[in-house]
Simulated scan of single mutants.
Amino acid sequence: MTDAGKISEGSSYDVVVIGAGPVGENVADRARAAGLTTAVVESELVGGECSYWACMPSKALLRPVVARADARRVPGLSAAVQGPLDVGAVLAKRDEETSHWKDDGQVAWLESVGADVHRGTGRLTGPREVTVTAPDGTERRLTARHAVAVCTGTRAVVPALPGIAEARPWTSREATSAKEAPGRLVVVGGGVVGVEMATAWQALGSEVTLLIRGGGLLPKMEPFAGELVADALREAGATIRTGVSVTALQRPAPDGPVTVELDDGDRVEADEILFATGRAPRTDELGLETIGLEPGSWLTVDDSCLVEGTDWLYAVGDVNHRALLTHQGKYQARIAGAAIAARAAKAPVDHRPPGVLTRPPPTTRPCPRSSSPTPRPRPSA
């Protein structure tokens, strides 16, 4: 260990991955499968947003809501499912699905494939160089012989409004991890996060009001999709107001209600307010300026997720803004991992193996086989 503020000379790896969500895990897995030494740097929980604050907890909250709605449409069954949901049981199942916000299992998985996990905040400090600041303030420098993969994802965007700090608004993280249903919940935004959380918390007993700046829900989908979701939310008891914007917030008492001021002069009072108003890349504190890139920007990549203008930096998943979806990020991770391995072996990245329809069916392989003698487990998230 070193004194805080001093950088110790760390280790050299073939690949350094910043971010241990599903995307980073899959990049590390592919790199290790090709026999490349790999370090994974994570500042929070190994498993990332999907496992603890997005996909897993949100679907755990929504599953009983959807199951009950489906059952109510089945003749002969609907009468048996007219009662309220067991909120405590739903939240307990949500906690189970997130492993109670503990990442021991996913750390063990990464270690089982041979990756080294470094706890702390990773920051680029030069080409192929990542400095990791540990929770105790000590710093360690990691160098990458072949590639650094940025898999840091995105963060929720909260608008800079008067009173926003005192209001302590929810983002998607608080909405998926809340320990109880608020009596009244205002949801600002009608995209996927907004409508999913409105659906979940309305069913769990909250009085939900959605405030939409545009003309309807789910604006990136066909209009009828948003209309159907709006009809279902209204039928469940939610209020939807379109064509309005929030101008200011007031929460005079820390434990008191929040007053939401609107641009039409009206006010809405709630116990909690959720801003589901978009995402921004987690690149503002990544050290991009040390390699000539703009901090806080989306990273533009080619089809192998190699950042434009570099031959060693990869941006994989949400951070490259191609498709902000976990399954798409994992798909990109497998591509990026294979590309890193191919370039490390000086093999062609655009190799197209021929198919020979004989028995057995031979093909060609551009990358070296894994040095691992036994099959390895796959990422769980």
Rank of each mutant, 00 (worst) to 15 (best):
R30H: 12
P127I: 00
T277S: 13
G190I: 08
L306V: 03
V244T: 15
S112W: 10
R378L: 12
L262R: 07
E308Q: 10
V158P: 03
A71V: 11
A60V: 09
R376T: 15
V74F: 01
Y13L: 02
M221T: 13
L61Y: 13
V17A: 02
L204A: 02
G243I: 01
A160P: 11
E96V: 13
F275D: 07
T121V: 12
V66G: 07
L233A: 03
P219V: 12
P354E: 11
G120F: 07
A178L: 01
R184V: 09
T143Q: 11
R334A: 13
E174Q: 13
G309Y: 10
L288G: 05
A149R: 01
G137C: 08
Y331Q: 14
V195G: 05
D136V: 01
G21I: 09
E289N: 10
C50G: 05
V23I: 09
L91H: 06
A381F: 05
A71F: 13
L62H: 14
L124G: 06
D29H: 11
Q82G: 15
D255E: 15
P348E: 00
P379L: 07
R359V: 09
V65Q: 13
R155S: 15
G256D: 10
P375H: 10
V186F: 05
A341R: 00
E111Q: 15
A89V: 10
Q202R: 14
V81L: 12
T38Q: 04
A178N: 07
S172R: 13
T364Q: 07
D264G: 07
H100C: 01
G191S: 14
I212C: 02
D86W: 10
R173L: 08
P361A: 13
N320W: 00
P57G: 09
R123E: 04
P375E: 12
A230E: 15
T239K: 06
V356P: 09
R279T: 09
V17S: 02
G194R: 12
R168K: 15
T247D: 08
P22G: 13
G237F: 05
S380K: 12
L204P: 02
L91E: 04
G215A: 07
T239G: 01
A238Q: 09
A34F: 06
G114C: 05
Q328F: 09
T138M: 02
V258K: 00
P22V: 08
P254L: 01
V258H: 01
Q332A: 04
L218W: 11
V40F: 10
K220E: 12
S372H: 15
E129F: 00
A31N: 05
A165P: 02
Q328N: 13
V187E: 04
V150Q: 05
G296A: 06
A28M: 05
T131Q: 02
D263L: 07
V150D: 05
V301T: 15
A333T: 07
P57S: 08
T300E: 14
G215D: 14
G47M: 05
T171N: 10
G287A: 08
C305P: 03
E111K: 14
A344I: 06
V246Y: 07
A54M: 03
D266K: 06
P127H: 11
R279L: 11
E235L: 07
S245A: 14
T242F: 02
T300Q: 13
E308S: 06
S78C: 06
Q332V: 02
L85Q: 06
L161Y: 12
V307Q: 01
P84G: 04
V208K: 01
P257Y: 05
L45F: 14
V188F: 04
T259K: 04
A80I: 03
V66Q: 15
T199I: 10
P64W: 12
L306Y: 00
